[in-house]
Design a protein around this nucleic acid. Structure first.
Length: 558
RNA sequence: UGCCCGAUUGUGUAAUGGUAGCACAACGGUCUCUGACACCGUUUGUCUAGGUUCGAGUCCUAGUCGGGCAACCA
């Protein structure tokens, strides 16, 4: 996509440019550091594009690093999905796939160093007492009675913590900073805790695990990260990040830079909430096509390029924002308009009988696969006396500007003939139209009249005898309001779930689609872009999922 | 009632003391064998009040509004 190559600029790149110009670094090393405790979503995609994008543009490196310091939340399943998603998004970490767990020995050593320097101590306060002593934002905390525990004693205790002599929560290692700091994170934060838990990578080798604040800056430092980019909520952690690296006197001290996370209308973006949707069965799994997860978007039919383009257009700032999901939809439409093959399919079928077309006759017409790309070629489309058309394309009584079928009006059958509506049949009981009749002009084969008369409307169709019946899944937004998180007191974001976000129907598609490969994308003309579902399609019955509808200015006018 | 961060059209962003621009959305039109696409046009913006300056969206001060921070989570 040409637009994707347009120069990107943002405040983080400005900082990098300045650092490079000042000779602070000779190259750029970034990292994407997910905790493997959930699936990646489009917000992570923004971070991935940012970090890997910078590495690409500055000829540097971006590490994929699993920040797996909390074994009770993490799982190998997530490691695998994250790896797959980053790869699918089109990024390459080369040899640089790391795990915080692989640094546990070094991180532990740094904690001992801190204790030896009397910059950390082992605290015996219970979690409740710990909380109480910390104080509240506008009131200073008070020192733990164990704050001045002798270095040797702390060291001994820490080693016994590691050796497994104590139960979870009995002791904790704390950095010795400032209990009166207005920044709560500086009030002697915990840096190591006891957790007798099995780790997905280190197994049962450890029963003490470092806290995020202690581990993360060390991981960055070990890897020689130059710019450690994270989201805004870590801003208040930065003084601690810097304090630890300063106290440890390490050589490499990366710069933490925070940016605003992505928010999207009509969806939620927290792992916890997404997990809740999966666990409670509101969706069909992490890769449900309605989910804002990378795997959900992939299954929905979004391309990696369209997601990258979206992330580029969204920009990077420190302003908390809510991006209109229409922008994401625009990005995929824009790409698929150029690349997707066209075909015809009728979602809500109504029989159309051409009364003057010879019974039993059929012929093969030619459909253009992509009007914007001649190299896409053409395909045969069978035509016969009885067709299916879209129910919405017929109205017995219709306004003047209704350019479709109504009694007495002529329309074009795409790539077919001009037909004039002569009437319809109805179910006597319900009044529902069951069949529409028309006559065709044999001189208009292919869709053009020799006398040059203009026909305003063109509708799509499939030959009833040749149609392939398939399953179609149409998606609407998962939530009914722009900000599902905004709920009144006592409410829950799930109250805003859209009960009609999924509708499943049968549809008739032209025979060329019968053998469509799972994962392939099409534009069903006048209807939308579809992907053949990769999970539920069978050779007998492909499942066509709508990625996004076509824009429809007629629908708006009505 | 503490500290930190932020504020440019409906939304997302650009402008690095010198003409407030772009994209999406909306609206109107042209074109059209997709009421799509494309093309043209229109509407809407620098939170407020002071200050510095020849000149302020940009710098300073105060305020207002919004967000974050009180897991042995990340």
């Amino acid at each position: 996509m040409a637009t994707e190559e347009a120069a990107v600029t943002n405040f983080i790149r400005d900082i990098i440019n300045e650092d490079l110009a000042a000779g602070k670094h000779s190259g750029v090393v970034t990292r994407f550091p997910p905790e493997p405790n959930g699936y990646l979503h489009i917000g992570h995609a923004k971070s991935i594009c940012l970090n890997f994008g910078i590495a690409q543009d500055y000829a540097g490196r971006c590490h994929l690093r699993f920040d797996d310091t909390n074994p009770t939340a993490e799982d190998i399943e997530y490691v695998d999905s994250i790896t797959e998603d980053v790869k699918w998004l089109g990024f390459n970490w080369g040899e640089s796939c790391f795990y915080a767990a692989d640094y546990f020995e070094r991180i532990y050593g740094y904690a001992e160093d801190l204790i030896k320097k009397d910059r950390a101590y082992v605290c015996t306060l219970s979690p409740e007492e710990f909380k109480e002593y910390r104080g509240v934002p506008n009131r200073p905390g008070k020192s733990s009675p164990w704050r001045d525990r002798p270095v040797e004693e702390s060291l001994d205790l820490f080693r016994r913590m590691r050796a497994g002599e104590f139960a979870d929560g009995e002791y904790v290692v704390r950095a010795k900073i400032d209990m009166a700091s207005p920044n709560l994170h500086m009030r002697d934060p915990a840096i190591y805790r006891i957790k007798h838990a099995h780790h997905h990578r280190t197994g049962d080798a450890w029963c003490v695990y470092p806290m995020y604040d202690f581990a993360h800056c060390i991981e960055d430092s070990i890897e020689g990260i130059t710019h450690s980019i994270c989201t805004l909520e870590f801003e208040v952690h930065r003084p601690l990040y810097d304090w630890i690296l300063d106290a440890l006197e390490v050589e490499c001290h990366p710069q933490q830079i925070e940016f605003a996370r992505l928010n999207l209308t009509y969806t939620v973006m927290s792992k916890r909430k997404l997990l809740e949707l999966v666990r409670d069965g509101h969706v069909d799994g992490w890769d449900d096509p309605r989910m804002p997860t990378v795997s959900g978007l992939r299954r929905r039919g979004f391309t990696a390029a369209s997601i990258r383009e979206f992330c580029r257009r969204v920009g990077v700032t420190k302003v908390e924002s809510l991006t209109d999901i229409a922008l994401l939809e625009h990005c995929i439409r824009d790409e698929l308009n150029k690349t997707a093959a066209r075909a015809m399919g009728v979602l809500n079928p109504l029989k159309l009988v051409i009364t003057n077309y010879p019974e039993g006759q059929e012929e093969t017409l030619e459909g253009i696969n992509n009007p914007g790309d001649e190299s896409a070629g053409t395909r045969p489309v069978p035509f016969s006396r009885e067709l299916y058309i879209e129910r919405g394309d017929f109205r017995e009584e219709a306004p003047k500007k209704f350019f479709r079928l109504k009694p007495g009006q002529e329309v074009r059958l795409r790539y077919g003939y001009l037909v004039t509506c002569t009437g319809c049949k109805k179910d006597e009981a319900t009044g529902e139209v069951t069949e529409v009749t028309c006559t065709y002009d044999p001189e208009t084969r292919g869709g053009n009249a020799p006398d040059g008369r203009r026909v305003k409307g063109t509708i799509h169709w499939v030959s009833a005898a040749h149609a392939k019946e398939v399953e179609v899944r149409l998606f609407d937004r998962l939530f009914t309001c722009e900000r599902p998180d905004d709920v009144p007191e006592g409410g829950d974001f799930k109250d805003n779930l859209n009960p009609d976000s999924l509708s499943v129907t049968r549809a008739f598609v032209e025979p060329s689609l019968a053998t469509a490969e799972p994962g392939s994308r099409f534009q069903l003309e006048r209807t939308g872009y579809f992907v053949v579902d990769t999970k539920d399609s069978t050779p007998e019955c492909p499942v066509f999922s709508r990625i996004v509808p076509l824009r429809d200015s007629w629908a708006k006018k009505r």
